[in-house]
Design a protein around this nucleic acid. Structure first.
Length: 821
RNA sequence: GCCGAAGUGGCGGAAUUGGUAGACGCGCUGGACUCAAAAUCCAGUGGGGCUCACACCUCGUGCCGGUUCGAGUCCGGCCUUCGGUACCA
């Protein structure tokens, strides 16, 4: 009889629900394990294979930890705000709230069928006022500490659709993904969170967390710390100063020109009359370029001089000031001191515009008079640098910096690539920003007691050229909290990464009304012990969450420094090498497989496919294999129905009392426990399941074993099965006669260490490193005991006869290698 | 370009600190069962050579070279694929 998953799976779901097996008692925190999955984004489609691949194995790990005696908390929720729901609304007219809630209901049902032990009391969704109220509260706390501020920033603007576009809506050729119009940059006053204040701590904190090295490296690069100097250049004939950042103060004597970013505020002021029209023309030409084109490294560098000159503080040389698009207003000071001899970009630019190239660092092994054919960027001896001549350039960095500081020309400076976090979105479906703009008082925060600022349902979310909320009169008109005059609310909403930067606190008490979260609970349960989610969040979400966590700590609400102690990324499942997405139309629906094979078989297959962190290309080719495994398992237990009533469960057997057959099986089951435990603990589900398959292959002769050993083996097999195929394992244990769900009363077995040790072992015999024979010897045999067995073996002697033995290498229990000549 | 990961049978993938390459599964081949098929069970399955057969030999982990008694694993140089990033001064 085939395993009737269609009956057993709903049956066990019901039992777990009735017995409250998935509820975590948060008042108990001994051996607590907070197991978090990145929550689901209900963007319109139902859950697909990628979600199963993420959540199924991750849940198996959590279940394994539960069986090992941990008090596991595994919540699930919905990252419900965001652009896709709004775009869907623009297209279909269905309100984002309605479509999102409908999606959530559908996805909740799907997730339930997977058989994950999500705590039903901990579910949250970000689009309800009870949740986003606290986004607003957080905003106000950041505002109070000067960590939320407004400034002008460019947005991608589609002149045809009259709307702001997210970066991902701009196609690689710089056009709008909807209508194909060329996207332009438009400046808007927008809100920022000052993540840069935490740059140093965010960098240093990476050393304290157990994350994939790859992810930590990405964050390090993203933060992009560089140490150097800020140098002041006087502008010839004016009081203005140009400040530049450089990591190479040792090359200061080689500066032959200065470059400003075209948008730099000093440009208009410094440009001399004869250069005005050229400069304006150049700035205009830059404007029509998209960000993507402008920052392309393949593009040839462009620029124009502005007619003004700067004075190099160290040698008082007069050098021209240029503007060029390779200077970025967003990095450093927006000004570059150009050293063509020792910087590749400056070299290229100087060659093109015939600017002087001066050598100030001598490459070892070359002569001062050799002409530079490319920029020399490595370490060397300083030349043409006045009092610093002859110094090693590494030492020169410090010496020149000290000189600058002594003479007030500059100072040591640490610079970060990290920029502040722009959180304003000119969108409807998000958290309203709790600020009121008053003609008299300026920007005024909403009083905390007036939170939440509720998102109205009635709104025109079709593009009109301004934020959708601006058109809702009831929403936008408000009284100034300070002076009471008529005023207007901020029409923008927050980036949804704000929602996800603290949600793990809220799971502990989604309904908590008095505060953002219950501090007493958080003190016991935060940080998250294990976080599982996609690697695509390495630099955005995972950095924002660390920032907000540190801010929450600084508010005194948590005592931990980092939110996620351990992190694992599941791999991506592709379809014919391409990412699955609705727009490509290549999404594989998991329902067809679960309907045919059941949730357990499908989960097992996803885990068995390969390493969890690697993902891979989707193929259902091998699913028959895990299906067969499930059938064979069920058949096996079916044969021993009621065994528990006929036999007793023993903890241990003495090897000497077992028959050869029994000994083999006893050893195998204990070896499997050891192997399975190690593998699943490290998220190596594929090899963990392989070990279970080996075990079932070893049960061929189980009929000839004693009833007690049969029960011993089957009980342990079912327990190992429980994390990876939970419904099946429960059913198998029930067949044996077990009456209590394993997830209601967790069980795990440690291996009998005596059974792990084999009596004998096969040793590989090599001649000159080539395998020639194997010999079976008692375990831990010494070389002298093994040697006589080898030199009588014809397979070995025929390769050494007539030759001189130079050396013999013996590795206990492994290898005997004879080196001959 | 730079940074990172990976490359192993027909396929997905195993392989502790360098120590018997190919675990486990898919597929395929042959056999049993069946009127027949499906399902199931049993056996075989990296390439080549030799052999009636057993056995044995030989090559083999992207390519070239090196270290070592011994390399999928370590080192140097390439090639390919996939991620990340984009003039960061």
């Amino acid at each position: 009889m085939r395993y009737p998953f269609a009956e057993t799976e709903p049956k066990w779901l019901k039992i777990w629900e009735d017995k409250k097996a998935d509820l975590t008692d948060l008042s108990k925190h001994e051996r607590k394990l907070y197991h978090l999955n990145m929550f689901i984004y209900p963007s319109g489609a139902k859950a697909h294979i990628g979600h199963w691949y993420h959540y199924g194995p991750s849940d198996s790990w959590a279940r394994y930890k539960k069986l090992k005696g941990y008090n596991v908390f595994e919540p699930m929720g919905y990252d419900a705000f965001g652009l896709p729901a709004e775009n869907y609304a623009i297209k279909t007219g269905i309100h984002p709230k309605d479509s999102t809630l409908a999606n959530i209901n559908a996805i909740r049902e799907q997730l339930k069928k997977m058989g994950c032990m999500y705590d039903p009391n901990a579910e949250l969704m970000t689009c309800v006022p009870e949740y986003y109220k606290w986004n607003q509260w957080l905003f106000l706390q950041l505002y109070k500490k000067w960590l939320a501020y407004r400034k002008n920033a460019p947005v991608n603007w589609c002149p045809n659709d009259q709307t702001v576009l997210a970066n991902e809506q701009v196609q690689s050729d710089g056009t709008c993904e909807r209508c194909g119009t060329v996207v332009i940059q438009k400046n808007l006053t927008q809100w920022f969170f000052k993540i840069t204040d935490y740059a140093e701590e965010l960098l240093a904190g990476l050393d304290k967390i157990n994350w994939p090295e790859k992810t930590k490296l990405m964050q390090r690069n993203w933060i992009g710390k560089s140490v150097g100097a800020e140098v002041m250049f006087n502008v010839d004939g004016t009081d203005d100063k140009i400040s530049v950042f450089t990591t190479r103060p040792d090359t200061l004597f080689g500066v032959t020109y200065v470059v400003l970013a075209p948008e730099h505020p000093l440009v208009d002021k410094l440009t001399t009359s004869g250069y005005k029209s050229e400069v304006e023309k150049y700035k205009e030409s830059i404007k029509s370029l998209t960000e993507i084109e402008r920052t392309s490294t393949v593009k040839e560098k462009t620029g124009v001089p502005i007619g003004a000159f700067a004075i190099n503080p160290v040698n008082k040389e007069k050098i021209p000031i240029w503007i060029a698009d390779y200077a970025l207003l967003t990095y450093g000071t927006g000004c570059v001191m150009a050293v063509p001899g020792h910087d590749e970009r400056d070299f290229e630019f100087a060659k093109k515009f015939n600017l002087p190239i001066r050598k100030v660092i001598l490459q070892p092994g070359t002569s001062e008079n050799d002409e530079l054919t490319e920029a020399y960027t490595a370490v060397g001896i300083m030349i043409n640098s006045g009092e610093f001549n002859g110094l090693n350039s590494d030492d020169g960095i410090e010496r020149v910096t000290a000189y600058l500081e002594r003479n007030n020309f500059g100072r040591k400076k640490v610079n970060y690539r990290l920029r502040d976090w722009l959180i304003s979105r000119q969108r409807y479906w998000g958290t309203p920003i709790p600020i009121i703009h008053c003609e008299h008082c300026g920007e005024v925060p909403v009083n905390e007691k007036d939170l939440p600022v509720e998102l109205p349902y009635e709104v025109e979310f079709k593009p009109t050229g301004e934020s959708p909320l601006a058109s809702n009169e009831n929403f936008i008109n408000a009284k100034c909290p300070k002076c009471g005059a008529d005023a207007r609310r901020d029409p923008d909403t927050m980036d949804t990464f704000v929602d996800s930067s603290w949600y793990y606190f809220r799971y502990l008490n989604p309904g908590f009304a008095e505060a953002i979260f219950d501090k007493a609970k958080a003190d016991k349960w935060i940080p998250v012990d294990m976080y599982v989610g996609g690697a695509e969040h390495a630099t955005m979400h995972l950095l924002y969450a660390r920032f907000i966590h540190k801010f929450i700590r600084d508010l005194g609400l948590t005592n931990s420094d980092e939110p996620f102690t351990n992190l694992v990324h599941q791999g991506t499942i592709t379809n014919n090498g391409a990412k699955m997405s609705k727009s490509r139309g290549n999404v594989v629906n998991p329902d067809e497989f679960t309907e045919k094979y059941g949730a357990d078989v499908f989960r097992l297959y996803l885990m068995f496919m390969g390493p969890y962190e690697l993902g891979g290309d989707w193929s259902d080719k091998g699913i028959a294999g895990t299906d067969r495994f499930v059938q064979r398992t069920y058949d096996l237990f079916k044969r021993f129905e009621g065994l528990k009533k006929r036999s007793s469960l023993k903890n241990k057997f003495a090897l000497s009392n077992l028959s050869e057959n029994e000994k083999l099986l006893y050893r195998k089951v204990n070896q499997t426990i050891k192997k399975f435990d190690e593998e699943i603990n490290h998220f190596r589900f594929n090899t963990a399941i392989a070990s279970l398959m080996e075990l079932i292959n070893e049960t061929k002769n189980i009929q000839s074993c004693s009833a007690e050993l049969q029960l011993y083996v089957l009980e342990r097999f079912a327990v190992m099965l429980a994390p990876v195929a939970p419904h099946l394992a429960e059913e198998c244990r029930a067949l044996l006669g077990e009456e209590i769900s394993i997830f209601e009363k967790p069980v795990w077995y440690d291996p009998d260490t005596e059974a792990l040790i084999e009596d004998s072992v096969n040793i590989a015999v090599q001649v000159n490193g080539k395998l020639r024979a194997t010999v079976s010897v008692p375990i831990n045999s010494e070389q002298d005991d093994v040697k006589p067995l080898i030199f009588i073996d014809e397979k070995v002697t025929k390769f050494i006869d007539g030759k001189t033995i130079i050396k013999e290498i013996f590795v206990k229990n492994k290898i005997y290698n004879i080196v001959v000549k």
